[in-house]
Write a protein that binds this DNA or RNA. Structure first.
Length: 426
RNA sequence: GUGGACGUAGCUCAGUUGGUUAGAGUCCCGGAUUGUGGAUCCGGUUGUCGUGGGUUCAAAUCCCACCGUCCACCCCA
């Protein structure tokens, strides 16, 4: 008999095992609650969109669009893509359903994203983001709200040590103007740039600002700053953003070289990073995108959002201690087994908050107790022939001091809540 | 996509200059009074040595390719 080669997961698309899911659920629960109390509503978006949507949103000259998208043709011949980020789909949905007519829209989403990159720590091909988008607000109070919201989330998660960097890119026109300024400045030095940066100069000159290459950084020191290309409106907006973020009590560092990899950003951009993460240090980032909705064929509608990487957050938030069930119900013998199913149903009904599980399969009482103990269960509820005859149920305490009580069946739920029997002698 | 390190039991890892039948701990299962857990003791299963080729009398060990993981570049959440 030839042995089949065992199946294996697709590279970069990982299983999330039961020992990790409680940690994830905790983070998701906290995020949901922080969003809820700030007035955000959840939006659920498809994992698949027309490929053209991402090209138009993210920009043709970006790595995401150029080489990281999962592209495929469906049976109709439509060119589709697995979403590499969620803002594009969110904007599409706002336009398609005219959500802007319903007033201010504060939205949040969570789910998997797909990018065909080389996997490494904190970077996988299917990864998960939680994000927020707000539509219809052009004023700097929106920046303050969104930065405060992220800060509140770290707080609620007990996360410290994150660093916020923030910058402004100005309007689309100002950014375009600065692009030309940068081109003029760097062109004579083209030969001094490393190959990657020479390519950036041609395709996306702004990305030179956050280059790590030595020669490029040296040249940047004498490059005209982006701030010089800003008009009075953008300057006023930027200054107010900094005032309000300061007033919100959020610490930040202005980084004039911070640019984001997506083309749709205007005005404020920012990034929360952690020194504990290695090369993939960005935990959360985002910015304003005042022109995107209109560019995609919607109404003029300013907007801003951010997204966080759940895998990276999971790596930073300490994992809570996982607790075992409140009780394990152990039947001994065929008749007890049949009785215990009804008992279990009653207990689930009467103690809805508790985790009470059935001891499944064969095995001696000893073996079952051993198994129950290893799951961390606090009580064993034992039903055998003796108990059936006497009309009681044995409850054995598995934590702390040894203790065994016999409880009339009718009082079992009450006993499990209080932990003390009405009459311990029986 | 580029460069480097690594890949032995479910997990963490030993395995000498190539040399008999590949090991430890842990975990899991069973036992030490027929229905009573944790500690201890005893016993048991751990395995295509990542995969496929090659060199050799002989390969976990040396060579090549592929796959995967990790680190960095790149990119970004």
């Amino acid at each position: 008999m030839k042995r089949e080669t065992p199946p294996a997961h697709v590279r970069g698309m990982n299983d999330l095992l039961p020992r990790e899911t409680p940690h994830w659920q905790h983070i998701e629960r906290v995020a949901r609650e922080v969003f809820r109390r700030a007035g955000y509503r959840e939006i659920r978006l498809p994992l698949v969109e027309e490929a053209a949507l991402f090209v138009r949103c993210i920009g043709e000259a970006t790595d995401i669009v150029e080489k990281e998208m999962y592209l495929f043709e469906d049976r109709n011949g439509d060119r589709l893509a697995l979403r590499p980020e969620a803002t594009a789909g969110c904007v599409r949905a706002v336009i398609e359903h005219h959500l802007e007519r319903e007033g201010i829209q504060r939205l949040w989403y969570a789910g998997p994203m797909f990018r065909h990159e080389r996997p490494q720590k904190g970077r996988q091909r299917q990864f998960h983001q939680i994000g927020v988008e707000v539509f219809g607000i052009p004023t700097p109070d929106l920046e303050a709200e969104l930065l405060l919201l992220s800060d509140e989330l770290w707080d609620a998660l007990g996360l410290t040590g994150l660093v916020l960097e923030i910058n402004t890119l100005g309007t689309a026109a100002e950014r375009e103007q600065y692009r030309n300024v940068l081109l003029d400045y760097f062109r004579p030095h083209r030969g001094e740039l490393e190959p990657d940066d020479a390519r950036r100069l041609d395709r996306n000159p702004l990305r030179l600002l956050d280059s790590k290459s030595g020669p490029t950084r040296a040249l940047l020191e004498r490059a005209p700053p982006l701030a010089d290309s800003l008009g009075p409106d953008s300057r006023a907006h930027w200054e107010r953003v900094l005032e309000l973020v300061t007033a919100a009590g959020v610490d930040y560092r202005v980084n004039p070289y911070l640019v984001r990899g997506l083309d749709y950003y205007t005005q404020t951009v920012f990034e929360w990073t952690s020194p504990a993460l290695g090369a993939q240090s960005a935990v959360c980032s985002g910015g304003r995108y005042d022109n995107l909705v209109e560019e995609l064929g919607g109404p003029p509608l300013p907007a801003m959002g951010w997204a966080l990487g759940v895998e990276r957050l999971v790596a930073l938030v300490p994992a809570g201690r996982s607790e075992g069930p409140d009780a394990v119900v152990i039947p001994l013998g065929a008749q007890a087994e049949a009785e215990c199913l009804a008992l279990l149903r009653d207990l689930h009904r009467m103690l809805p908050g508790r985790e009470i599980e059935l001891s499944l399969g064969a095995g001696s009482l000893k073996a079952r107790l051993k198994r129950a103990d290893r799951t961390g269960a606090r009580r064993a509820v034992i039903v055998g022939e003796d108990e059936l005859k006497r009309g009681v149920i044995q409850v054995k305490v598995l934590v702390g001091a040894r203790r065994t009580d016999f409880v009339p069946r009718a009082q079992l739920a009450e006993y499990l809540v209080g932990g003390i029997p009405a009459d311990p002698s029986q």
